[in-house]
Design a protein around this nucleic acid. Structure first.
Lengths: 166, 166
DNA sequence: GTCCATGCAAACCTTTTGCACTATA
DNA sequence: TATAGTGCAAAAGGTTTGCATGGAC
């Protein structure tokens, strides 16, 4: 696990959110928050559980899921889905609050980037359709630099000749 | 189920793909392909099963999943994930082969759109990171025109005051 | 006749829920 | 002390797999 920013101020912020909602601030909730805020990664529930266990905590998965729901409600944490069959979570308190992802189909590495253009597209397309946008997700799938250098190829087995449309 | 384009030519195309791969062309595979090609919707496995049953077919879910794997391998069908907890499938043989989605958080309606800009972003960002892109996904979440007109609001319960970062 | 597909059920995996017990406030 | 949270295990929901049977070629 990579060293992250000091998580304590963010954990306090989460505590404040809980109090605002009239909910108890428990050790388990603080521990889950600390792991998520203390990591720069996109963490899965399994990874969060592993970090907690290695830190001496013994917190049930159900409690982790319930704490994550609250963190997402508080808007301090974002839920991500890269199509792996499970969700990942990341804190939203970094300098770049909204970002897009390049995802390597071979090694799973995720590279983050920002794009003002995407926001422009969001605004103009939404206007065209009478849509009121709240958030978006842009993911580009392919091969990362390292996998290209290692000679990895994305295997393709599609039809061998061009598609005749009707 | 909305009336779609004549699916037969596409089913034949799929049959050709199967023969190219040395795989049997079975009635079940053709039936699944016909449902997917015959619909303009993004179909879930349950919906596909329902259409098959109402058409007199009795095909097991496992077979549907296996047929869909082949359709995706053939590149004739795309797998979609709108974060609903299950996958959806759509044919890739329409006039607009690549498209993005506006997704209503209230009613689930999906509006499709195209954007040449997204392709430019894909190319330029990939170049910046030494990444070789194969595909992308842009999804904009929010409220559709009808839900706005119906007075629906996206409920937000985040922190009530601005986030103090450290 | 040889493979491979099918159907069914069981297994799997992530996530949710029920309930007795415990901690917060 | 009242209310809500926790842990465990069971349930749920979508998807995958094992295996005996049946169909494609």
């Amino acid at each position: 696990m990579k060293a992250g920013p000091d998580a304590t101020p963010f954990v306090r912020l989460f505590g404040r959110y809980l109090r605002e909602q009239g909910l108890p601030v428990t050790h388990q909730r603080e521990a889950v928050a600390e792991v998520v805020f203390g990591s720069g990664e996109h963490l899965s529930v399994d990874e969060i559980e592993r970090v907690l266990r290695s830190g001496g905590h013994r917190i049930g998965k159900a409690t982790i899921y319930r704490a994550l729901d609250l963190l997402v409600d508080s808007k301090l944490v974002a839920e991500l889905d890269f199509g792996e069959g499970f969700k990942r979570y990341e804190h939203r308190l970094s300098a770049e609050p909204i970002h897009e992802h390049l995802i390597c189909l071979n090694c799973g590495t995720v590279i983050e980037f920002q794009s003002a253009e995407v926001h422009r597209i969001e605004a103009s397309v939404s206007a065209q359709h009478g849509f009121r946008p709240t958030r978006h997700k842009l993911e580009i799938y392919g091969l990362c630099r390292d996998c290209i250098a290692a000679g990895v190829e994305v295997t393709s087995h599609g039809l061998t000749c061009p598609i005749e449309t009707v």
